[in-house]
């Protein structure tokens, strides 16, 4: 037996059918501390894939392994950020970010320290004591991202985490996320419609077909880290971009 280190997450021959087939035999592997992005046409089944992986929806076929072991009950194992922010209107921004601690039964004081740290780091601290309804769409999304990070799982599933943000905030957030990723040793899988964003953040980009979703290709992004915003104009970057566009 070889002692190869197990993948952080493995999806094997996954199929999901509602009225029609949504996901068809998707397999993908994610190494520890990798950042993986998933790109595919609207409605192809990216959110559905995350719903299955996170254990909210049952697959019709296939299995999911975490750290090399098949996991049937996966609730609570991932930090899952939904496509919509889904902040609780009855909790202030700070309390929303602390939600994960509450569910895990972690002491309030400690929870608050960590939540405040995240809010400060992501420039959201001045809104800590407001209710989400008074935030803009982009700020809500940011708060939802922090709530996901604060859930303290080492694997994050982020469903279009930057979709509602303006270009500048978005690119700031990319850098913050990379920083947190490195600090906390996270494994991140995210979906996006933005090819440049996918290349800039990821180690590999999975390209999915339209419904029923299958893996068309997996592109390795061999850009060195740490990455800078200026990398986005490099020759290598533009070539990768062209390659992915040709697949879609």
């Amino acid at each position: 037996m070889t002692m190869k280190k197990a993948q952080k997450l493995e999806i094997k021959d996954l199929s999901v059918t509602f009225e029609s087939e949504i996901i068809k035999n998707i397999s993908l592997k994610v190494e520890d501390r990798e950042i993986i992005s998933i790109i595919g046409p609207s409605g192809c089944g990216k959110s559905t894939l995350f719903n299955v992986v996170s254990g909210i929806i049952k697959q019709n076929k296939g299995l999911i392994k975490i750290n090399g072991l098949e996991e049937k009950k996966r609730q609570g194992k991932f930090g899952y950020m939904f496509q919509e922010p889904l902040l609780f209107p009855w909790l202030k921004v700070l309390e929303n970010v602390m939600l994960g601690f509450e569910i895990k039964g972690i002491e309030k004081k400690q929870a608050k320290i960590e939540a405040v740290y995240l809010l400060k780091k992501f420039d959201l601290f001045e809104y800590a004591n407001l209710y989400p309804n008074s935030l803009s769409g982009g700020m809500k999304q940011k708060a939802a991202l922090l709530r996901t990070i604060a859930f303290n799982s080492d694997i994050l599933l982020l469903d279009e985490p930057f979709g509602l943000l303006d270009a500048i905030t978005r690119s700031n957030l990319h850098l913050y996320l990379l920083d947190i990723w490195k600090k906390l040793g996270l494994t991140i899988i995210f979906t996006t419609h933005d090819i440049r964003e996918a290349i800039f953040l990821s180690d590999r980009v999975y390209v999915l077909s339209k419904k029923p979703a299958t893996v068309i290709d997996c592109i390795k992004i061999n850009l060195s880290r740490p990455r800078k915003i200026s990398d986005q104009t490099s020759k290598k970057f533009v070539e990768l971009e062209k390659k992915i566009i040709s697949l879609l």
């Binding site: 719903n51 996170s54 254990g55 909210i56 609730q75 609570g76 194992k77 991932f78 899952y80 939904f82 919509e84 889904l86 609780f88 939600l99 994960g100 509450e102 569910i103 859930f151």
Partner: peptide
């Protein structure tokens, strides 16, 4: 129902 699914994904109990 999305909020309920969010909590389910977090592994919250019925009581929570």
């Amino acid at each position: 129902s999305s909020i309920l699914r969010l909590l389910t994904s977090m592994g919250a109990s019925q009581k929570q």
